[in-house]
Design a protein around this nucleic acid. Structure first.
Lengths: 332, 332
DNA sequence: ATGAAAGCGCTAACAT
DNA sequence: ATGTTAGCGCTTTCAT
């Protein structure tokens, strides 16, 4: 196979030193105009590309952004990744995606590899942390924790969704429509976002003078399955719930899947308010009401935080909150 | 910030040469057992990770797989990326995703950057090629062209979907239900996949003794918009089509969006057969009939081709075909 | 069993 | 305006 094209290749071709080539390519002023032209032409002809490895080894920024997501099938994450990938391409950054499946070991490996390639920064949805998990070494990375927030040894920034108001509106809306037995499925309290959403739900219930039947509140590790199973068991409960609010993307899809499979009409059989706003929600059942998050805006913020200052630690870690909103369609 | 941990850091800590550390970490036999333990412990404590840059500069494989997709919002691509990301994580590979938006310039940049980081291989959905596009330098990459196939200067492998039979079945099915005015929206003929699908459609029409009204056949650069606009204009045509077959993922979503926005009942107002099988198709309109592609299998194949032999050129380029199937639900 | 040297591609810091 | 040197982290080769 063809030998790798380096500045030395070009230098020898042109009978100059490799430094002249380096300077020409870097637009350094001290290069004869004619020489520069020759270098540029030759580089272009040979398809020269600067070695990222050499650059990285010198300690320069790599322009690599790591993205750790539980998965990328969930349309919310997919849209986030999509927006982020476009933004990265626009800024000449490389996006390395690792999927964690919300598993601490996978997350650990992913961070290792990102440190290996000297990624400048990582945008991550931290996995629900078990206490025995080993500490992540994040010192040389600029970290943004997305969606969920976990305490780490190194300072990390946060990009969180402020959804308490939207969840409260959801409950208010259901109450206004006469619902009193309102169920909720969300992430377990060990995740701060799980705790936050749950308390938003409970407070809104209380504010409307509604009792929270423990049978109608389900929490656990957020997943499609949790949504399915919780929805199923809620529907089986003697205390028939007339409405369901979801507090997680996967959960929402899982719960919705169960309701649809059971042939339930919404809102007649059950009023449904999902979480996240995949395009398909618009089409299902004449429109699924949902708590919608501004994905593209979130991607912008994430990249903003990590690229505002490429040197880790130079900027203080910051927390940003972006508001979710309740979108009412026909399912509630 | 903390200085990067290298084998020298560990070597100095332990008062040995960096070579001993290197050997200990590489599991080389000629290392004192006690020394090895010390090295391993220290490395683990300090969170040492081997520099990918140094490794790459020595010419070793980087374990980087590039993925070039038009976008990642389309659920087919998202599921493919998801499956590929999982497979990569399992094999300790890093997946770098670049989105091309089917644009040659973006594609060009993406390939440049992948060559810069010395990616071992690239799995790409080639953008529809305009003739004036500059040649891609793909010599040092192991390339798999996915979905679409383009002629390149360097040898590349192909991973293509064999969907002629599924498309023919779609037409047969519609004809069996009494449809005669069947419309088709697909990619333009300049893409081999576009040409293939279109001819499969035309042949099936002919076989059933049906005429192909040119007004009911639309092709172009595959996109959501093409689907929307073509569907709209087909629905406006005096020659009322009673059925619609889609020949592309984005196209399918776009056409479906238009039909749903116009409040059409399927299959009564129009029989609809989509392309690709996002989970939501199961839920929309009681189930959208579609030409379904085995995504996970495709991801396995793609990684198989590139990782069967990491050295570019050592394995001959190969073409693989994976069969699509017609999934009938309630929309046709 | 351990160490020293060289080289991968690049650029900052010195020559010339 | 151009060239030489050194060093980033690592492993292969050649000593010891």
């Amino acid at each position: 196979m063809a030998q790798r094209v380096t500045i030395k290749t070009i230098a020898e071709d042109l009978g100059v030193s490799h430094m002249t080539v380096s300077r020409a390519l870097a637009n350094h002023p001290n290069v004869n105009a004619k020489t520069r032209q020759q270098v540029l032409k030759r580089a272009s002809d040979l398809g020269y590309v600067k070695s990222a490895a050499a650059t990285a080894m010198r300690g320069d920024a790599t322009g690599i952004v790591g993205l750790l997501l539980p998965n990328i099938v969930n349309e919310f994450y997919a849209r986030f990744a999509n927006a982020l990938a476009i933004a990265c391409d626009d800024r000449a950054l490389s996006l390395i995606i690792h999927l964690t499946d919300d598993d601490a070991a996978r997350e650990h490996q992913a961070v290792r590899r990102l440190r290996g390639v000297q990624a400048d920064s990582v945008i991550m949805v931290p996995s629900p942390k078990a206490d025995q998990d080993e500490e992540l070494h994040l010192d040389d990375l600029k970290v943004v924790q997305f969606i969920r927030r976990r305490q780490e040894a190194s300072p990390t920034s946060g990009l969180l969704v402020e959804d308490k108001k939207a969840i409260a509106s959801a409950v208010d809306q259901l109450f206004a429509k006469g619902h009193t037995k309102i169920a909720y499925i969300g992430a377990s309290k060990s995740l701060t976002s799980g705790a936050t959403r749950l308390s938003a739900f409970e407070e809104a219930m209380a504010r409307n003078g509604l009792a929270c039947n423990p049978e109608l509140i389900r929490t656990g590790t957020p997943s499609f399955d949790l949504g399915c199973q919780s929805a199923r068991s809620i529907l089986e409960t003697r205390t028939q719930a007339s409405a369901l609010v979801c507090g997680g993307f996967e959960i929402s899809n899982g719960a919705l899947d169960t309701c649809l499979r059971q042939g339930l009409k919404m809102p007649d059989d059950i009023a449904f308010i999902g979480y996240g706003d995949p395009a398909s929600y618009m089409w299902i059942n004449g429109g699924i009401s949902t708590i919608s998050l501004p994905v593209e805006l979130l991607a912008e913020h994430a990249l903003d935080i990590v690229s505002s200052n490429r040197q880790p630690y130079d900027g203080k870690p910051e927390d940003r909150f972006v508001a979710a909103s309740l979108v009412l369609r026909s399912s509630a």
